[in-house]
Design a protein around this nucleic acid. Sequence first.
DNA 1: CTGAAAGCGCTTACAG
DNA 2: CTGAAAGCGCTTACAG
Lengths: 335, 335
Amino acid sequence: MKATIYDIAREAGVSIATVSQVINGKGKISEKRRAEIMEIMERLHYQPSAIAAALTGKQTYTLGLLVPDISNPYFAELARAVEDRSRQLGYSVVICSTDNKDERVERYLNLLQQKRVDGMMIGTGIDNAEILSPLLQQSIPIALIARHMPSLSVHTVTIDDILGGALAAEHLLELGHTRLAVLSEPSKVSSSQERVRGFRETLIKAGYTLEPNQIRESAADLSSAKKEALLLLGEKDHPTGLFCCNDIQAIGALQAAKELGLRVPEDVSIIGFDNTILASVTSPPLTTVAQPIEELGHRAVDLLIEELKDEQKEPQKIVLKPELVIRESAGRVLG
Amino acid sequence: MKATIYDIAREAGVSIATVSQVINGKGKISEKRRAEIMEIMERLHYQPSAIAAALTGKQTYTLGLLVPDISNPYFAELARAVEDRSRQLGYSVVICSTDNKDERVERYLNLLQQKRVDGMMIGTGIDNAEILSPLLQQSIPIALIARHMPSLSVHTVTIDDILGGALAAEHLLELGHTRLAVLSEPSKVSSSQERVRGFRETLIKAGYTLEPNQIRESAADLSSAKKEALLLLGEKDHPTGLFCCNDIQAIGALQAAKELGLRVPEDVSIIGFDNTILASVTSPPLTTVAQPIEELGHRAVDLLIEELKDEQKEPQKIVLKPELVIRESAGRVLG
DNA sequence: CTGAAAGCGCTTACAG
DNA sequence: CTGAAAGCGCTTACAG
C-alpha cells in the first residue's frame, strides 16, 4: 500500500498538519522533529500526492503544450525548449499533437482543463478562434507560440516573420539573383504569408518584382513540396533563387533540383526557414532563416508562470528576431 | 468561478450523486433528467475535475514517457506513436527528457509518482537499475522501450538488434563488399553492442572478419560521428562498406566522406540504423535498418493499459523485427 | 430511479 | 512550536 500523510504522522507521533509543514518547508518546526519526520518519509518511500495537494488549492504544476505534430523536428525542438524551462521552474508538460484539426484541439483543450493544468501553450493552428474563449472565461493562462490571433487577448510569443522573409530576399539579391520565386505554405498559415510578404516587399524596394505565378504553395510535407518544386524548377527560365517557407519545403526543392539535374547552388539557390536539425544534414547544407526556437519556448513558459505568480493579467506580445544562417545551398549567380 | 458538481446539482435540483452518474454514464437515470443535466453542464461550461476524480479512486489517465531527448527525431517519432495510442485509449502523456542522466531520471520518476500517473514508459538509458525498484514496490506499471534490463521484472518492447546488424551485414556482403567497418555508440549502449554483434557474426559466418580497429565508437551526435568517420575513412585502404549504429552517425559518415572527396556509394557504402526522417532527407538518401518505431510505441502503451485493466501482472517481453530499407547510400562495390 | 453520507489525501486558517 | 477541524470536488456503496 502506498504511504499517506497519515502513515507518516502516526509513525512520527505528530499530526498530519505538522507533516504537511515539513513537506512544504513552511511554519516553524523544531529541527529535531523535522529531521525525524524526513527520515520516516524516506524510509517509507513516501511520495506526497500532488493530486490531493492540487485539490486543496495548490497548483498542479503541469502545463499543456499543443502542437500540430511532435514528430516534426521543428515542434520537437520547441517542445524540448518548453520542457527544459518548465522543469527548471518545477513544472511538467503534457504534449498534445493536433494535426491542426480543430476538433482535436478542442478535445485536448477540454481534457487539459479537466486535468486542471496551470496553463497552456498553443503552437498549433486554430481555424476558429472561438474555441479558445471558454478558457479565457475560466481565466486559464494561455500563451500562443509563433501564432497570431489578433482577436484574442492572450500572451503571444512570435518571431518577426516579415523580417525573416526580408532577410532571405536580401541575401539572394546580394548574391546577384533577380529571377526569384517562393514556395509557401497554404494561405491559412499566417506566418507563411508574412514571410512571403517580407520577401516580396524587399524585392520591390530593390526594384524587382515577384510575379504571382512565382509564388507557389504546397503542404508542409516533403513529397508535396517536391512535387510543386518539380513543376516550378522544371520550367524553362526557372528562377535561380528560391525561398521556401520552411526547411522541409526547402529539402523538397533540393530533391526536385537534383532530380531535374540542376546543381545547388550553381544552378539554383535555395533558402529555407526554421533552421531545424534537418537544415544541417542535407547536402548541400541549407542556408536558412533561423528561428530562435529555444527562446520561443522559454519565453512562452515564462509568460505563463509570471501570470500564475503575479496575477499579472495584461497579455504580453513578444516578438523575437530571426537570423539568416548561411550554409551552402545559396550561392552567387553564375554567368 | 469554475463550476463544480454542486453547482450542477443545485441548478438541476438533484443530488451530486445523480450528476456523477450522468457524467460517468453509470446507473439508471431517467432519460429526461439525464438530458436536462447534460444541458446544464454544457451551459455552465462544466468540466469535471479529473483531479478530484482521481483522488476518489479513479485513474489519472495520464502516462509518463521518459526519453533521453525529445528533440532527437527518433524519440520525437516514438513520442508521437506513444501519444497517438494513448489518446485513442483516453490517456494523455507527459514527456520527460533525461539527457540520459540518472539523477534526472530519478527526479522525474519521483515527480511522476507524486502526480500519480497510471504507468510509465522508459526509453531512456539507466545506469543503475536500482532506481526503478521503488516503482516496482508500488507496483506502478512500467514498460521499457528499446532498452534491456534483464535484472528487472518489467514489461519490455524491443527490437531484435542482432538481426538488425545481420541485415546490414548481409546487404553489404551481397553488394560485394569485403573491407568492412562499423561505427557504434559507446559500449554502455547495449542495443548498439547487439547491432555490432549481429553484424560481426554474420561476417564471420560468411568467412570474413571484422578487425578490432574496424570497430569505432563515437557519441551519437553529428560532429562526434563525423570526426570519427573522418579518421576511419581517411586511412588508406579505408573500408568500402560502413555500418553505423544510428542514422545520425551515418550522416556524420556521409559528411566525412564528402569532405574527403569520397563518393557515396561509389567509393564507400554507408548504412544507417533507425530510419528516422533524417534518412530520407540526406543526399544520397540513406539505406538504413528501419525500426518499427510506431509499433514500439503502440505496444508499450498497450502493455501498460492491459496491466491496468486486467491486473495481469506477468511482465511481457515483446521483440519486434527490424527491416532493411534500401535507398541510395549503399551500392555495389566497384572494380 | 435517486439521495445522504463517508472518504480519498492533502492544505489552510485558527487555536493554544 | 503543534494539533483539531473544515474543506477541496469528486465516487462509491448503501438505503430507500
